[in-house]
Simulated assay, not measured.
Amino acid sequence: MRDATIIPASESERIAAVRRYDILDTPPDGAFDRITALAARRFGVPISIISIVDEDRIWFKSRHGVPVEQIGRDPGLCASAILADDPYVLTDASVDPRSLANPLVAGEFGLRFYAGVPLTTADGHNLGTLCVIDKEPRPIDDAQIEDLKDLASVVLDQMEMRLAARRAVSKAELLAKEIDHRVMNSLQFVSSLLSMQSRSADVGEAAHHLRLAANRVAAVAQVHRHYTFEGADVTSCIAFLRKLCSDLEQVLGQPISVQGDEGDVPTTAIQPIGLLVNELVTNAAKHGGGTIEVGYSVNGGVHRLSVCDGGKGLPADFSLAEARASLGMRVVSVLVSELGGDLRAGPRPDGSGACFTISFVPGAPRPSTLQ
C-alpha cells in the first residue's frame, strides 16, 4: 500500500527539481486556473487542484472549489500520487484500503472520489499533481483518465515555458552585465589614452583640454560602473551619489562632500542623475574652488539635486539660456529634460560660489525649464 509518509530514495533530487521551477508561493496565474476549471467541468466535480508537493506541505498553485492554499504533506493524497508515475484513482475512498485512514476521507471533509495525475518532468521527477476531487463516489473511464493526463501535460508545459523564460532573462542579464563591464573598460581605456596624449611633448596648449577630456571620460566610466541594480525598480539616490562622488574625488583630485536625505528614485532615473552630477561636478572642479558640495533632498514628493562650489561665483550677467551654447550646458539641459525637471543657477545660500539645482518629481515627467 502506498502511503503519504513514505519518502522515496530520490526525494532530495525531486525537491531540487521543485526548487528549479521556482513555482512555490507564486501568485495566482490565469493559465493554471483555466486548467483546473476545465478539469472540474470535464469530470463534473466541484474541486480541481494543481498541487506542488514540498518537503512538509502540499501547496496549491491553482485551486478550483476549495478556499485553502495548502495542507500538510502527511494527510495529502497528492503526496501518495507522486510516488508512482501512473494516475492515482480512488473511485470510492470510503472503502478503498489505501485511503480508509486518511483524514480527508475519514474526517469532516468527507472525500470520496480522487483522481490525480503526477506532474512529471523530462528528467523523471514528480513535482505534484493535477487532481479532481468529489465528496461523492463516482466511476472514471479510460478516456477521462487520458484527458486528465493531457491536462497535466499542459500544466507542465506552462511550467517549462516559465522556466525557459526565466533562464532567457537570466542570460540576458548576464549579457547586459558583460556589455556594461566592457563599456566601462573601454571608457577607462579612452580616458587613459587621452591622459597619455596630454603628456606628449608635441601637443602644446591642447594638453589642458586633453586632460579635461580624460577626466570627463573617466567620470562617465564611474557613472556607468555604479549603474547596476539587480533588477530593482527603485534605489537609494543618496547611496548612489556617495559611491559615485567617492570615485569622482579620485578622478578629479578635488574634495567632494555629499549630504542629503534618504529617498528612493526609479532606477531608470539614476543614470541621468549620475551623468548630471558628473557634468556639474566636473564643471565645478574646473571653474570653482574649495570643496564641491553635492546635496540631495526630498520635500513633499519633490526631489532636489544640487552641486555647489566655493569659487568666485557666476558672472553678474550669467544666463542659463545663453550658457546652453556650451557643450556642457547642452548636455545638462538634455539630462534635466530626461528627468522632467527644472534647472536653476545662482549663488550658494551664503551668497558665495555657484550652485546648480535640479528639481524633479520621479515618475512624473514635465517639460524642462531653465531659469
Rank of each mutant, 00 (worst) to 15 (best):
D202T: 11
L210G: 05
P266D: 15
A218E: 03
V169R: 00
D247A: 14
I145H: 01
V203Q: 10
T228F: 07
I270E: 03
F240A: 04
N185H: 14
L280P: 01
Q259K: 14
L275M: 09
E173H: 04
P255A: 07
E279H: 02
L193D: 15
L148V: 08
D157P: 08
D264I: 05
L174E: 13
A172M: 09
L212S: 10
V155Q: 01
D147H: 10
M159D: 00
A213W: 02
G204S: 10
I179D: 04
C245P: 02
L210W: 03
D142G: 12
R216A: 14
G263M: 03
A152I: 04
A269D: 11
A207V: 03
F189C: 15
L241N: 01
V183S: 06
I179A: 10
L175D: 08
E205F: 02
D264V: 06
G231R: 05
S192F: 11
V155L: 04
A152M: 04
A269P: 04
L156F: 10
Y227R: 12
T228Q: 09
V258N: 00
V234P: 09
A218I: 03
V190G: 07
Q259M: 14
V220G: 02
S186Y: 14
P272T: 04
D150Y: 15
R199M: 14
A269F: 07
R167W: 02
E262A: 10
G260Q: 09
L210H: 04
E178I: 06
R199V: 13
H209V: 13
D247L: 09
